[in-house]
Write a protein that binds this DNA or RNA. Sequence first.
DNA 1: CCATATCTGTGAATTTATGCGCAGGTTCTG
DNA 2: CAGAACCTGCGCATAAATTCACAGATATGG
Lengths: 301, 301
Amino acid sequence: MANWDDIRLFLELAREGSLSAAARRLKVDHSTVARRIATLERDLGLRLFDRLSRGYALTEEGDTLRTSAERMEQEAIALQRQASGRPALQGTVRINTTPMFASLFLTSRLVEFRRLHPDIRIALSGDQRLVNLNRREADIAIRLAKPSESGLIARRMGSVGFGLYASRRYLSTTRPRDYGFIGYDEALGHIAQQQWLEAQLRGRPIAFQCSDMTTMYHAACADMGVAVLPHFIGTTDPQLRRVAAETASADRDIWLMVHPDLRRAPRIRAVMDYLVALFERERNLLASGAAARPRRRALPS
Amino acid sequence: MANWDDIRLFLELAREGSLSAAARRLKVDHSTVARRIATLERDLGLRLFDRLSRGYALTEEGDTLRTSAERMEQEAIALQRQASGRPALQGTVRINTTPMFASLFLTSRLVEFRRLHPDIRIALSGDQRLVNLNRREADIAIRLAKPSESGLIARRMGSVGFGLYASRRYLSTTRPRDYGFIGYDEALGHIAQQQWLEAQLRGRPIAFQCSDMTTMYHAACADMGVAVLPHFIGTTDPQLRRVAAETASADRDIWLMVHPDLRRAPRIRAVMDYLVALFERERNLLASGAAARPRRRALPS
DNA sequence: CCATATCTGTGAATTTATGCGCAGGTTCTG
DNA sequence: CAGAACCTGCGCATAAATTCACAGATATGG
């Protein structure tokens, strides 16, 4: 029977797609990962990965083994949960946040949470407006403004930095003095980023208006013009490039809010703890766009 | 995340109940098992085993972790099955053998097979008479006589040795010349062991007759007298002791039979392969009662 | 086109894990 | 009660795995 621990490394490498990234997460040297994968392949008698120049990609056979490995991980996690004396958490936790955070930041990162707590269902609502936590319209909210509602627990979780971004194509076909901008529509003129954007215009036009930042992002990708986007989006997407601005944009604080009655509920605690750790880990990426972990490379999945 | 391979050792130790026995099965040194269990306990932050003088016994906490570990093992086995390209085997395999083999030898040892192939259901019938494999009354038969049915594949799988055994209590309260014997009833006088037994009587009576060997075994345990029993039973049960005989008992060959049409069916093959390996492993125990693996100790489960 | 950052691969150095032998204890047996 | 056959625990030599350090390859940005 092969070494079970090699399967753990296999899973991590399958997820990360590169020796170095997997090694970082596993806190071992990349050569260790390479060697252990090699012995696993020898034990099982088949090639699990294609060694591409840019990383390791699962072979077809490797991909079929992945699901078994993932089920194995589920049991390992269950075992450790039992060992720590915690009962299995279950229930639904509703998270309310901005459309931008919901679709471009949280969704992909909550995959790991689902693995750790398969019995907690996450309901993620991306909504422009903050729902009323006192009326239990959501359990947890992540917002860019300090709450005005009284009686909530609010915790600051770092900040998001913004900058001007446009697609490579747009920038290579347009002179700076002809730049058109992408902004919020009139109803949202009070938003900080919008006011900052207007200061950058210097007579140039707003070419496209919309009501939320994910649309701005897609508009920018579609060569529509220059948009104010969070650094974590602008630096992560290889299509986009930053445009120099006259003044630095103001950062906005990220706030996590929860109703005090719910704060101690175990499932809520589990989500909060995870979110706090997540925002801490991604602190630099959010603030300045400097990737804590390297950006995802496009590997044939 | 703890080392998954330690969990594999944990499972084996939980099953075997002693460092040395687990180490033998894992093909590592017993001190390795001890150290790895110690690190697992440290990682999980709790005591998994009670260190008794006679071995390692699961603590209550350890026992709750065992089921998770077993499910993990199921997934590991599934992964390896996929890796070897074999599809998951399923279906029922009916095994026909003597009542003695069925209840006192195979049942406990087929537990491991069930682990390896959870989708194969075993139907084990212990019957005094050999069923007709040609009529598909069973898929595989394990018998002590070479088959007379034509058209069957028969394979010799070692032999069983017999000896005289009685309970300690009986032997300590009865003089040899007063020994009463336990034998087959008249209808079964043709059986080899019965004929050998009659040669040992020297005028002493047959005190109890029955029609199969498991009953003999229970009769002997109940201080009913001296019985002809296979060594693998007599030396395994601590209640029994061997009684010297004038002549050595004849060994009987063990035959595995299967219908040639079924021989290549994957599920049948899986069972046959396992049985062949099992009988090979237990060869010495069956022939002379010398335990290949040490006898099971009674640990508080 | 060069500088930078991120990969993988390889051999030497070092840390870590394993096996071995023996001591000490317990249980079973004659 | 002595001997055999188990068991565990510990120190030490050695084998094995891991890290370290550096080289080469490949994209990316200015």
